[in-house]
Simulated assay, not measured.
Amino acid sequence: MTLFLSVMVALILDRVFAEPRRWHPLVGFGKLADWLEKILKPRCEGYIAGVIALALAIAPFTFLAWWFESQWSLDSEPSSVNYPYALSAGVVLYLAIGWQSLLSHARAVSEPLKIGDMDQARYAVSMIVSRDTDGLNEQGIAVAATESVLENGADAIFSALFWFIVGGIPGVVMYRLSNTLDAMWGYRNTRFIKFGWAAARFDDLLNLIPARLTAFTYAVSGKTLCAFHCWRLQANTWKSPNAGPVMASGAGALNVSLGGGAIYHGQWQDRPSLGPEFGSPANADTIKQACGLVNRSLLLWGGLLFCYGLWI
């Protein structure tokens, strides 16, 4: 039950306070990552520099998290409720998830899109996607936002929960720092193609299992048969090994057509279609439905954790 209480503390804090706007630890970590890049890239070959930077950025904090957790959980019985640990772990998990932030960004797109304020909707979606948004029409904006909700639901919520469940505080710290480095360094451009390789591959590895658990959860929380069908046929067509299952399953669960070509950094990229062949076109309501799917999936995870806490 300690595990369940920790997750509830994190979700309640996130629901009440959302993402901290000042003094967020990840902001400081981002500055450290920039410093490591600046120091190591001129001194080491690209791939080697990236591996060393990844280790130096993650290992000390993961070890510190392990030590911190050991002070709270040492000598506690598995069947007892460790309230001090549940509170402290819940605070750490709260800093690692982005539930309300995800929903807030989604609303910032769906609400102006609903009333036809295309300029505001384009601006809002540009805050959460990397594709060029200036030329997007209503459906293009809705597709981009819906895809972002589905994919970031896995990254910002369920993967963090998974690594907390299996690895406690050290697990979720390791995951969130890795995911942050992937977001900073995991680009296939001249600057990061070599240096960011290790961070991108490590993040892919950490997301391998939770991404598929997220896809499964989306399926059972929506149109199940359609989601599994899309997952089976479309997941491997996507360039990302972890985003593919999540987005294909999510599109099927919502019975919506996603994917398709898009412009990234001025270059057109062909992307496969996601969702059922005759799925509904994406619109403002689709974004809200994606948020609802994430919320139902989170409720399912919470229910399973509660049952697990009662069982042990």
Rank of each mutant, 00 (worst) to 15 (best):
64 L>D: 04
82 N>M: 04
277 E>H: 12
225 L>A: 14
147 E>S: 05
249 S>L: 03
258 L>A: 06
297 S>A: 13
232 R>H: 14
174 M>G: 12
63 F>Q: 13
301 W>M: 09
53 A>K: 07
64 L>Q: 07
112 P>A: 10
120 Q>N: 14
233 L>I: 11
80 S>C: 09
187 Y>E: 01
31 K>P: 06
275 G>Y: 05
231 W>I: 11
292 G>D: 10
225 L>R: 15
300 L>I: 14
33 A>T: 11
52 I>Q: 04
59 A>R: 00
225 L>G: 15
189 N>C: 08
90 G>I: 01
102 L>S: 01
77 E>C: 11
296 R>P: 15
251 A>M: 05
211 A>G: 07
82 N>K: 07
25 P>G: 04
156 A>I: 01
154 A>G: 00
96 A>C: 15
209 I>E: 07
26 L>K: 03
148 S>W: 00
237 T>R: 15
179 N>W: 00
286 T>I: 06
139 Q>M: 13
160 A>K: 05
82 N>W: 08
193 I>W: 13
291 C>D: 05
148 S>L: 00
303 G>H: 02
213 L>R: 11
243 A>F: 02
269 Q>E: 12
74 L>K: 14
23 W>Q: 08
272 P>R: 04
157 I>L: 14
139 Q>L: 08
110 S>W: 11
193 I>S: 10
244 G>Q: 00
12 I>G: 09
21 R>V: 09
48 I>Y: 11
141 I>V: 12
240 S>I: 04
184 M>W: 02
78 P>D: 05
75 D>H: 03
201 R>P: 12
18 A>T: 10
3 L>S: 08
286 T>D: 07
248 A>E: 00
227 A>C: 08
189 N>Q: 02
177 L>H: 02
33 A>D: 05
281 P>W: 00
68 F>C: 11
222 G>Y: 04
218 Y>K: 02
135 G>M: 05
218 Y>N: 07
283 N>A: 07
144 A>H: 06
297 S>R: 08
175 Y>A: 09
143 V>C: 03
41 K>L: 14
33 A>K: 02
195 F>D: 06
146 T>V: 06
296 R>M: 12
15 R>M: 03
67 W>L: 14
298 L>Y: 11
166 V>K: 04
35 W>C: 15
308 Y>V: 08
4 F>G: 05
290 A>W: 00
274 L>W: 00
119 D>H: 10
28 G>P: 00
190 T>Q: 15
264 Y>H: 10
82 N>R: 00
287 I>Q: 01
103 L>K: 11
297 S>Q: 09
107 R>P: 13
56 L>Q: 11
200 A>H: 05
242 N>V: 05
50 G>P: 07
161 L>F: 12
167 G>P: 13
129 V>H: 06
291 C>M: 13
277 E>I: 13
113 L>Q: 07
234 Q>G: 02
113 L>I: 11
291 C>Q: 11
28 G>I: 08
202 F>A: 12
120 Q>A: 15
95 L>T: 03
254 L>C: 10
224 T>F: 12
74 L>E: 15
206 L>K: 09
7 V>D: 03
38 K>H: 14
220 V>M: 04
168 G>D: 02
285 D>C: 02
152 N>T: 04
142 A>V: 01
95 L>I: 03
11 L>N: 08
243 A>T: 04
232 R>K: 14
